[in-house]
Computed example of a mutant assay.
Amino acid sequence: MTDLNAFVTGLPKAELHLHIEGSLEPEQMFAFARRNKVEIPFASVEDLRGAYEFSKLQDFLDIYYQGANVLCTEADFHDLALAYFDRAAADNVVHAEIFFDPQTHTARGIPFQVVADGLLAGMSSAQTKHGLTSKLILCFLRHLDEDDAFATLKVAEPWLDRIAGVGLDSSELGHPPSKFEKVFTAAGDMGLLRVAHAGEEGPPEYVYEALDRLHIDRLDHGNRSLEDTVLTARLAREAMTLTVCPLSNLKLCVVDGIAAHPIERMLRAGLRATVNSDDPAYFGGYVNDNYRALIGMDGLDVRDFAMLARNSFLGSFLPDDAVTAHLATLDTYVRDFMA
């Protein structure tokens, strides 16, 4: 019998849905708060962890934005990123595409340059230290208006040669993708790839809007797509990658339990599903924790876990030659493990 835990541990993989601000561990939050003399509304690490009980996305976002207040300098953003990459490398992540939310920081007076240069330095350090490659995706906050998104895109222009794409995150309900159609069109005209959170709490109609009005290259979450059989068939036919986050879905009550998670249904429907950690400091684990959470699901076997890893490379924004090399390494790993 295959030891799925051991198989997952060594499985080469990419991570495609990671909010870097969401990797801020409680210990880091307190350390940065002390370093920058920022007050936070929690007495201790234990007190902070005790607040991580969420019934919906907004419950999490309220604490997420409070935590981001401790990030003030390039060194903070560098250290935050490198700490994530250290954990990712330990999970045998060989490539990561990370989101960042510049509006969260510029709104409190932190220059875009501080955020971007700090993260890019952390990414460079990770490649030197671990050989782990990465790409940066600028996310617009959907609870703000499109003019604010346009202003952020304008400020980001000097860094666009080092930013792979734009995304859309934050509060989904009441903020449909169509709200940002013009700024996504502008980003596409600049040569940026496009991704968007849709179908996590929002209905299948939000996924249609992300596809047809934002012209996304990858769909973040997408769980509720399965409620629409025509949409599901379209996503399968177009080989649209879904960046699925099991522990996030569990923690935010998107699913009733891991046994009810739709990822097996996604795979059986031919969807290019991947496994990711979303905001791991808040949701109980990094990427291998998310893979392991699925091990007990009826019906998933070693071939499915290999396919999830394979999809992570196929769905990445790496050039074809890099994808081919990663797939060859993955195939060798699977063959050797099974032997």
Rank of each mutant, 00 (worst) to 15 (best):
L4G: 05
F7K: 08
F7L: 05
L11T: 01
L16T: 08
L16K: 00
H17N: 09
P26I: 11
E27I: 14
F32G: 05
E39P: 01
E39D: 08
A43T: 07
E46M: 14
D47R: 05
K56T: 09
L57S: 14
F60L: 15
D62K: 15
N69M: 09
T73A: 15
A75G: 04
D76R: 13
D79G: 15
L82K: 02
D86Q: 07
D86M: 08
H95L: 08
D101N: 11
T104E: 14
H105I: 06
T106W: 00
I110G: 11
P111C: 04
V115R: 04
L119R: 01
G122M: 15
G122Q: 12
T128K: 15
K129N: 00
H130G: 02
L132I: 03
S134V: 10
K135G: 14
L136V: 05
I137E: 00
I137M: 03
H143K: 13
F150V: 14
A151F: 03
T152M: 13
K154W: 03
V155P: 04
A156R: 10
W159Q: 06
L160Y: 07
L160T: 06
L160F: 04
A164C: 09
V166E: 09
S170F: 15
F184Q: 15
D189T: 14
L192I: 07
H197E: 00
G199Y: 04
G202M: 12
P203W: 01
P203S: 08
Y208K: 10
L211W: 01
L211T: 12
H215I: 12
H215A: 13
D220E: 03
H221A: 09
G222C: 10
S225Q: 05
D228W: 14
R234K: 14
A236H: 03
R237D: 12
A239V: 04
M240N: 02
M240S: 02
T241R: 02
V244L: 06
C245D: 10
C253G: 05
D256F: 00
A259P: 12
A260S: 08
H261N: 14
R268T: 04
G270A: 01
A273N: 07
D279E: 15
Y286M: 11
N290D: 07
R292V: 13
I295A: 07
G296F: 04
F305E: 02
F305R: 00
L308C: 02
L314E: 12
F317M: 01
D320G: 03
D320R: 02
D320N: 11
A322Q: 14
A328N: 05
R335I: 02
